[in-house]
Amino acid sequence: MFRAVISEAKEFKKVIDAASNLLDEICFEVNEEGIKARAMDPSHVALVSIDIPKEAFEEYEADVHDIGVDLEAFKKIMNRAKAKDKLILELDEEKNKLNVIFKGAATRKFALALYDVSSSNLQVPDIEYPNEILIKAGPFVDALKDADLVNDHVTLKVEDGKFIVYAKGDLNESETIFEEDSESIISMNIGENAKSTFNLEYLRDMTKAASSSDILKIYLGTDMPVKIEYDVAGANLTFLLAPRIES
C-alpha cells in the first residue's frame, strides 16, 4: 500500500521538474518513513538524490514498494496542476499504475503506467570537501546566466576567501565575485583555495527547481564533483556533477 497527500501540487511539481531535467526515468523507493530516489543521468555525469520524509506530506501511509515511472510522462501530468490543487499519489497494485490525483475545483485523476525501473542502490558518496558555501539561489543562477553568455562551461572557484563564478570563451569572459559579507552569501566555510570546471547546462538544470530565495549548499573542491543541496517543499534534493578536467 502507498498513499500520500501533498498540500500543494505545484511545489511537488518542482521536485519532478528537477529530476526530469536530468533523468528519463526514476524509481521511487517508498517505505513507512518516506520516499527516496537516487539515479545517475544516462551519461553518468550527474547524480540526483531525492529524499522526502513522511513529515513533508499532509497524509502519508506506505509499506515497502519500488515505484518506477517515466519522468517525461509524470512531468506532463504535473504540468496540469492548478495553483491551489492538492495532490494525492496512490499506488494501484492491481492495475500496476500510480494514480496521480489533483483535488481542486474538481477532482482530476491520471493513472501513470509503472515501469520496471530497478532501484539503483546508489548512495551519494561521502566525499570530504574543503569548502562549503551557503548562497541564495537567485544570485548564483544569475552568475550562471552571465557565464552562459561566453561559454558552455563554467569554473567555480574559492580564492582568498571569495567564491567566484568564472567563464572564459574564445573571445569573452565573465566573472561574478561573492565576498563573504555579500548579501547573497549566508555562510562560507572555507578550508582552502579550490577550482573546478563544470558543464553549464547541467548546473542550470540542477538549480532549476530552486526559487531565488532558496538557499543552496554548494560543496566545492579542486577537480572534484560539485555537490549542490537544497530543499523544495520539504523534500531534500542533492545533486552531484562530475567536473571537466584538463587533459
Binding site: 553518468h44 566525499i127 570546471t197 558543464n199 572534484m224 578536467i245 587533459s247
Partner: peptide
C-alpha cells in the same frame, strides 16, 4: 582543453 569526466571515475 578540458574534458568531461564521469562520476564513476571518482567512486572506484
Amino acid at each position: 582543453k578540458n574534458k568531461q569526466v564521469k562520476l564513476s571515475d571518482f567512486f572506484r
